[in-house]
């Protein structure tokens, strides 16, 4: 459809170039614009409907988190008959040690993302410099590792960490960051560095640059978008991780927010707004990071303008 209208448009332009009177063009315009518009409206309608369906639970949840506590939740949506209870967001920090858990999560996620950044980029960088045969094997290994689900290694990891005395420490949570957290991150760097021409690195080696210098001065600056993506993905990996802290952490004071929230699941129905408020608090950083990443990756330095262009473009 689109191609057809483009062709008609080209015909119209060609006719105009040949000196056809502008009034003649109406018939072209009629064909070109009308059906295109209807289709576009239909498409926007469908896309908007789908987007709304996906976002609706989040909107509902945010509104429900602002209902005053102590009342049974409304059966149907009735607005805010008893007022908007912003105080729920203060109350939730009193009901559970949310501030402490957020702090723990922030610590674990930041360290995890930082270490992941180093190890994943080192591995990806080294892979690119290897011979094609070795590269082939390493990529195969990384893809294979992607297919091994985390729960296949629950038991031995638990036993291993127990033997090493690492149970109830953050080292147990962060151990995977030493291998780049997920082999996906290594692959992301590998694919990103592969786009850099080999000659660039070759000439650096000929000039006597060390591998370390090549990584720091050449490779990393060229892979900035990948770095940003890996930081966001690995940060939210550690932020969201539920099973590892469930298995490895014992002391409540060390809980991350993912395991901390578990204590809310049995909350009384009249206090559900608190539960949902806590969920909103937990989700918010991850959401903001993803939205930020999406906008940053459009390689536009002017952030605010980017936001506006996204909304109205």
């Amino acid at each position: 459809m689109a191609t057809m209208s483009r062709k008609l448009g080209e015909q119209a332009v060609a006719a105009l170039r040949r000196g056809a009177p502008a009034s003649k063009l109406y018939s072209f315009a009629h064909v070109v614009i009308r059906p295109g518009h209807t289709a576009a409206h239909l498409w926007h309608g469908a896309a908007l409907l789908v987007a709304v369906i996906f976002l609706l639970p989040l909107v509902w949840m945010t509104m429900a988190s602002l209902q005053p506590i102590g009342l049974p939740p409304a059966r149907a949506w009735t607005g805010f008959p008893a007022g908007v209870a912003w105080s729920n967001y203060a109350e939730i920090f009193r009901v559970i040690p949310l501030a402490q858990q957020l702090g723990n999560s922030f610590l674990v996620s930041t360290v995890g993302a930082g270490v992941t950044l180093l190890t994943a980029s080192w591995a990806g960088f080294a892979m690119v410099q290897m011979s094609p045969r070795v590269q082939h094997w390493l990529v195969g290994l990384a893809l294979l590792l992607l297919l091994i689900p985390a729960n296949a290694v629950w038991l031995p990891r638990y036993v291993l960490f127990a033997r090493l005395g690492l149970i109830d420490t953050y080292t147990a949570l962060l151990a995977a960051s030493l291998m780049g957290t997920k082999s996906l991150f290594v692959l992301m760097y590998y694919w990103s560095f592969r786009r850099v021409t080999v000659e660039l690195f070759e000439s650096a080696w000929l000039d006597g640059a060390s591998v370390w210098t090549g990584w720091r001065r050449l490779a990393m600056p060229l892979a900035a978008p990948t770095t940003l993506a890996v930081l966001v993905l690995s940060f939210s990996h550690y932020w969201s991780d539920f099973v590892d802290p469930l298995l490895f952490l014992k002391t409540a004071a060390r809980f991350t927010v993912a395991v901390g929230l578990r204590s809310l699941q049995q909350m009384d129905v009249t206090r559900w707004s608190l539960l949902l408020a806590a969920v909103v608090v937990m989700i918010a950083p991850v959401m903001l990071l993803y939205i930020g990443l999406q906008m940053w990756l459009r390689d536009e330095p002017d952030f605010a303008r980017r936001v506006l262009r996204r909304l109205f473009d």
């Binding site: 976002l55 989040l58 969201s240």
Partner: peptide
């Protein structure tokens, strides 16, 4: 895509 990045625990509670 945003609904995919919600942490598992939060998703379950929602």
């Amino acid at each position: 895509y945003l609904t995919t990045v919600i942490p598992d625990v939060a998703f379950a509670l929602i």
